[in-house]
């Protein structure tokens, strides 16, 4: 085997890190500077953008809204996708190609287009969902569906589902019992991947949130958009806070996953 060229390898990693981290560091620096217009470095350091941000009731509410609607959509996705994937894999494996096709449908229509359609359908006299978080929940379900289904389906394909359930049945378990004691615990990886992917995707979602609900149930992204006329330092503080909250939630979820 050839000796790895460690200098070359290292530089690739360093370049990658720089591309990933520099903009974030820049944003962080911008959010704590008094002003930064003439020199290579900011003129002064301040926390005033953060104090005014966290004093803004509207921001806290938006953050809360974002987290709530994302978690709600994730819950809905998992409650629907996990049993569906199980039923497809265990009872109707011939439906797998069909499932692979329908979960790709949300990709076929860009959010701008489908949100206009949803606006039309759900703003009539019978069902008025636009402007409420409920329509966002539904729209987000379609966004999260492909990622969740794929992650869970891949996990399920790696389990020896048929034999495991046969063994469980012969040992006296009902299918229902076997699902909760054997199938679900073994889907942990798929569930985790699906949760992380979908959560980070949904919390950054803007188009659906802005068009379907707007300021009536303001999410972080919509708030950020509506604050665009305020100082760039303030916007940077929003981005950094939002980023930190996601990191925090990821760590918490990771801890929780390890404990299980």
């Amino acid at each position: 085997m050839q000796r790895p060229n460690s200098l070359g390898h290292l530089s690739v990693i360093i370049i990658f890190m720089m591309v990933m981290i520099l903009p974030l560091l820049g944003t962080l620096l911008y959010s704590i500077s008094t002003s930064w217009s003439s020199g290579l470095l900011p003129d002064g350091i301040t926390l005033k953008w953060y104090t005014s941000l966290f004093a803004d009731h509207r921001f806290l509410q938006a953050m809360m809204n974002s987290v709530l609607v994302c978690l709600g959509a994730l819950l809905l996705t998992l409650v629907l996708v996990v049993p569906t994937a199980f039923i497809v894999f265990y009872y109707f494996p011939f439906l797998k190609p069909f499932m692979n096709f329908i979960i790709l449908l949300p990709f076929a229509v860009p959010p701008v287009v489908s949100s206009v359609g949803l606006l039309q359908i759900y703003s009539n006299d019978v069902v008025t969902l636009t402007g409420t978080p409920w329509i966002l929940l539904g729209a987000y379900f379609t966004v999260a569906l492909p990622f969740s289904y794929r992650a869970i389906a891949n996990n399920m394909a790696n389990l020896n589902l048929q034999d495991m359930l046969d063994a469980a049945h012969l040992l006296g378990a009902s299918t229902f019992r076997a699902f909760f004691t054997i199938v679900l615990p073994n889907l942990k990886t798929g569930l985790m991947v699906s949760l992380f992917l979908s959560f980070s995707l949904l919390i950054g979602e803007f188009v659906f949130a802005n068009i379907l609900v707007g300021t009536r149930f303001e999410t972080v992204q919509v708030y950020l958009f509506n604050m665009k006329t305020r100082s760039g330092h303030f916007s940077s503080a929003v981005v950094v806070s939002y980023f930190l909250i996601i990191v925090l939630m990821t760590i918490l979820a990771g801890q929780w996953g390890k404990k299980q």
């Binding site: 020896n160 495991m164 046969d166 063994a167 073994n186």
Partner: peptide, 8 residues
């Protein structure tokens, strides 16, 4: 043949 043990 596949053992069919419960991995969890």
């Amino acid at each position: 043949q596949s053992y069919a043990l419960f991995p969890n």
